[in-house]
Amino acid sequence: MNEKLALVFVIVVLVGGGIAIGFGWWQGQSNIVTLHARMPETGGWIPDNLTVAANQPLDLRLTSDDVQHGFAIGQSDQPAVDINPGVVTELTLKFDQPGTYTYYCTRWCGVNHWRMRGTITVTGESVEQVVTPPLFVQIGLDIDAPHEAEFIPSSKPSAQNGENLRFELSAYQTSEYYRSHSPEQAWVDLRKDLTLAAYSDLQLWDAVAFIWQTNTSEDALSEAEELYAQNCAACHGVSGAGDGVFSDQQVPVMGEADEAFSGHEIVLPTDFTDPHHILSASPAALQGKLIRGGMGTGMPMWGVIFTEEQTWSLVSYLYSFQFKEVH
């Protein structure tokens, strides 16, 4: 009698508990994708591929299996969501346009953090969209060509001083000119311009800084400052000097595709404080590098993450390591 009671008790406790756990698990499974975030070395996003129909809700349960991660969709206004280790965060997404979207990790989770990306395929009737190639393609710029400025300013140019020349610079202030010319080219053009012959070399550098200044805005620079801190500073350094915490760890090898690079030296991140390098790069070239990535260096491809506007903001921010702005 007692023995039977004991058996029933054990069965109720253990089997009941088991059923309850199974039921709870099953509840969590129904129709909802659980997206696991792991450091790229141990798997990255699992799964790294999602499919949903346009205008249909995509319910996600986000969780991290190791450290803090974040979730965001490239080129979207959807605010980034933090993913905490062992905690489930629920999120519902809806896409009205068919196409391919990239989701990426927004919190640095190690040296390979930027490799942590996945894609969402949104199916449906798509409207034919005209895709404009990036500027560097349009103007036929070889962004991998080595460049080194011959002329550099003797001190940090000031956009404020350059403002004095504003009436003489109108031809150089257009966005087309600014984007397709490196500051050095602009300076050489100004130097060659006979109407500006009266100005000293440094005054013309101030003018170049002013051209930069008029092609950006305070809002753009402050947005870019934030983007830079979140996405770039870990390698390029908070000060832009290429001395970020991961600067000496970016090994240009991961996966078979990059095997050709194995055995190569570590490519150090670009030092934006080096005038020889940055003043000889045009905004189009910098934007090209930014959206395409470094091809074998540790530089990620940001084209699917940042909007075009954001890339131009970031480019203008990079020059702020060379120029003093108007305050």
Partner: peptide, 11 residues
């Protein structure tokens, strides 16, 4: 009972 959080690249 104070705390601070930092991401790499964001001291």
């Amino acid at each position: 009972d104070l705390s601070v959080t930092a991401d790499p690249g964001q001291p």
